[in-house]
Nucleic acid binder design. Sequence first.
RNA 1: GCCCGGGUGGCGGAACGGUAGACGCGAGGGGCUUAAACCCCCUUGAGCCGACACGGCUCGUGUGGGUUCGAAACCCACCCCGGGCACCA
Length: 806
Amino acid sequence: MSYDHRAIESKWQKLWESQAIFEVTEDPARPKFYNVCMYPYPSGALHQGHIRNYTFGDLLTRYKTMRGFNVLSPMGWDSFGLNAENAAIATGVHPRVNTENHIATMTTLIKELGSMYDWSRELASHDPAFYRWDQWLFLELYDRGLAYKGEAPVNWCPKDLTVLANEQVIDGLCERCDTPVVKRNLAQWFFKITEYADRLLDDIETLEHWPERVRRMQRNWIGRSEGAAFTVEVEGGGSFEVFTTRPDTIFGMTFCVLAPEHPLVSQLVSGAEQEASVRDYVEAASRVSDIERMAEGEKTGVFTGAFAINPVNGARVPIYVAEYVLMGYGTGAIMAVPGQDQRDWDFATKYGIEIIRTVEPPADWEGEAYLGDGTTINSDFLDGLDQTAAKHRIIAWLEDGGVGAATVSFRLRDWLISRQRYWGCPIPMVNCAVCGLVPVPRDQLPVLLPDIEDYLPRGMSPLAADEEFVNTTCPQCGGPARRETDTMDTFVDSSWYYFRYTDPHNDQAIFDPAKPAYWLPLDQYIGGVEHAVLHLLYARFITKFLYDIGLSTVEEPFARLFTQGMITLGGSKMSKTKGNVVDPVSLFASHGADALRLFHLFMGPPTDDAAWNPNGVDGTRRFLERVWKTATGDHQFSDRPEAERDRELIGLAHRTVAKVTEDIDRFHFNTAVPALMILSNALADYVETEPRSAVFDEVLRRLLLLMAPMTPHVAHELWERLGHGSMLATEPWPEWDAALAITETVTLIVQVNGKVRDRLSVAPDVDPGEAERLALQSEKARVWIDGHEVRQVISKPPRLVNIVVG
RNA sequence: GCCCGGGUGGCGGAACGGUAGACGCGAGGGGCUUAAACCCCCUUGAGCCGACACGGCUCGUGUGGGUUCGAAACCCACCCCGGGCACCA
């Protein structure tokens, strides 16, 4: 190999760092560009996904810097969380020790990639200087009723012995350990994200530079549905609320269903002959995990013995308890309309319940429940109306009678933030026997996470065993009190860390609002698509909250979101469990960081999953070798018609600048790289022997400028060796001249009936008549034209002439 | 079931409705070398015609239709792969 990547990479990494090129402050004179790669969990290893992420991010940092932006690109650590704690349980080493070792290792590796950050702003969520403000944020939410403790059926992972947010349950399984999740009634801390549901949904429309896929996933997740809620009286006393999206079908309600967890159930059956069977059913339902519930194909349920009164016509209908109604959605109770709902149809059929159609199905309808539009029937004063009119009419009727109202239901639940685990941010609350729940005063923050010996989860936070931590005095009455021992979900940390980057060392406030006022929103946020609904939704929520309390000038934190694809090998995601990991760090040693970076840019569209090619980095290294050889060789220029050849090469250089610029701007890195290869190959062909020419120097200069953000070490080294005194990283990005970018000749395609029959070389500005004449004269085309009538000639000079013959 | 993406050589992938397969990997052949590696050159969608060579023809972007002078791209139907959501009332 002709260049020593180890030597030049470490040389330039040191220079960039010592010259603090990527350390920035607010500068109103320049346009800002706030660029963040999602901060990593410090696992201790750098995998290909990280490399891909940071290569894209660094490319942008460097590119935007060259384009004159004031670029902030910080780095930090998502350093709380279950992984470190589980590792601690396995090894006995304190999570802090492990975490901090991992951070040190990963910092070194990230620097070896040549990826540049403003390290003066580094933060870590396990640092009390950071999590102190998690606690402060919690108190702000608490003061406004947006953080609350409530008993609710929660997702419980029996293996990790902790609760999970809805978003952390995948197909009924714990997202970390794939254990089936069960429901438990527990007192837990929640953030009231549902209060923001409408704004979170509506503002998705403003996120025009987000991938449509992520926007759709968030819309889905929030799951807004419009309908009506109304009260159903129970015969003999009592009532319950139901929610429906189809109030127009109310006359078809032939039974009602309560969720097994519905609070009215036990009251309804108390003393009834059905009491035992209903209690058995509810008991059985509570024992199975959601995944088992879903696996049940057939709907099951049990009659309560009670009857409800349909408010619209006084009909007496049976009340059932059935698993297919979920306590977690709507009101946990439904009016069942088997004629217009397939689930209700199935249930009614199984239990012999009456079915009334209230919407006229099409004449040829052979299905069961009819969900489509039609004329309303069997519905008294709604008869003859279409669905929209019927909905309006019935809602007005419900409202007039004080029975119900139009309402909106969300699939989104409040965000459950408490975790019964050790390695997280303590919740800053105390329980006083006299005063109840009392917030820790802000001047007593942070509530420090104590060092403990035993992190084994026992269904309560390990902190509960630390008497010294737990026992405290009540901030209100001074009497004895006990601290909250749950810690916060790590997604609380990540929902605001990008604010903290703008003022990372502030020990008086979470940040000075003037700082994010300058930097936010993020101009680019880059990370994996797996965060589409978790982190990205929570972060939007917290930003809106910070906006509401006057700390943020923006309601949406991420102006542009880029979600990168995964790296796959042998058809599946690279992962330790699959055993198909290619360690990127060994490639630093063998091929160098530049070659690895370039391959990540080259391997395919950045949004798509990309298959790892074991020989790919060989290829990009070969390219860099050729550039090196071309740039450093002693060249002679042979006799040739110089002017024309020079113009061609200059033209290509200008076209390449245009193409690479455009491709970077639209994140098409995989097509920018080939453009560089073509230019460098042309340059290599151009040189034969010495001495250098001005054209060669100019084209090479441009090539190195274009390479600077992609393969910064090689580009900087060659830049220096060619005698440029400046630092390449701060050189302005090259411009291009459209006049020079023009080619001498272009290929004119001659088609006959749409088939290519000849290719002619013409001037780029050839006029339409001339192009047509040349095409019609083409001998190769004449073979296909002669003997036929020319019916039409489509002339699109200078690229194409299509001759239509009959 | 509903909602999205996507199907192009041996592989990753290019291609404003206008030369399909850029660029790279791999493979084959040749050169360099005592030899190998590196490196350099040539070939590389399929089939066929022609032949010293230049060349030429037909087919070809999941399948079947359609629109168009012209379709990988636009429209309709279907098949397959990937993802998201899902007893959501």
